[in-house]
Nucleic acid binder design. Structure first.
Lengths: 133, 133
DNA sequence: GCTTGACCTTGTAGTTACTACAAGGTGCAG
DNA sequence: CTGCACCTTGTAGTAACTACAAGGTCAAGC
């Protein structure tokens, strides 16, 4: 699979794929005889993973860390645990916030359906509770 | 409340707060007699909301849109519904991905606790299923 | 009263994570 | 043999900050 097709398959521009390679997020793929990058299913998975993770608000550094962990889980347990636990805490926090946001958005959409105007409290809901950060 | 304190209260640098004001995310606050920005609880809420939303991967434009909706929900139902529904779809997608990620991270942390080395499938899990984008 | 630190402004420049060109070249399919 | 996708290097633009510097005001503590 060449870069263009890989891009189409993952919703990533060719230029972004090359950028990820330069930045070390994507290992340099094998090349065809004519020097074209040749992507297989593994690289496509990685690309999709990067895309999703970035959409979820993780930095390239965090994505790198997660992938490194997945790549060789035979690292000292301490290291792996430290990374995984930290990411897990972040994931939990995001889940909490997103659930609150969903609830408010659902309310808005629902009351809209019934022709009434909603009291939209998205701001208050994400502003409140779980202590500053 | 002056800019520094507002920053400390929300985990935002003064410079970022002024930047948000310039970009129209934050309405210009009242000023003290000595021309200092004077923030009240409402502005703090807004700041926290912006911070959280950005961490969840929403763009400044999306944050703006959400706040505009919250600010006057008396807009035509059509408009509000269109925005809210779109955001809701995004929130749901993020929730799905985060839940998958959480599951994998939990597995890793758990097996670490038991001294075993985990098979970490974070990549596969976020790469798979819900169709490309 | 004076120093110190927080604030004010404008402006420039650096960072991250892309995105989009241009220039100059190779490979391949119709 | 034309045209498009790819290759490279390099520059520049965008979004969302972050960090200075310069030059100035304000207020709290000694």
């Amino acid at each position: 699979m060449r870069i263009g097709e890989a891009g189409r398959a993952t919703g990533t521009k060719s230029e972004t794929i090359r950028y990820y390679e330069r930045e070390g997020l994507l290992p340099p793929p094998p090349r065809t005889s004519s020097n074209y990058r040749d992507y297989g299913p593994d690289e496509i998975s990685r690309l999709r993973f990067i895309k999703r993770s970035r959409k979820l608000g993780f930095s390239m550094a965090q994505v790198k860390e997660l992938m490194a962990m997945a790549d060789d889980p035979d690292q000292p347990c301490e290291t792996v645990d430290k990374i995984a636990s930290a990411q897990l805490r972040e994931v939990e926090a995001k889940l909490t916030d997103l659930r609150a946001l969903r609830k408010e958005l659902t309310k808005v959409v629902e009351s809209c359906k019934h022709g009434t105007v909603a009291e939209c409290r998205v701001i208050e809901v994400l502003a409140g509770s779980s202590a500053g950060r």
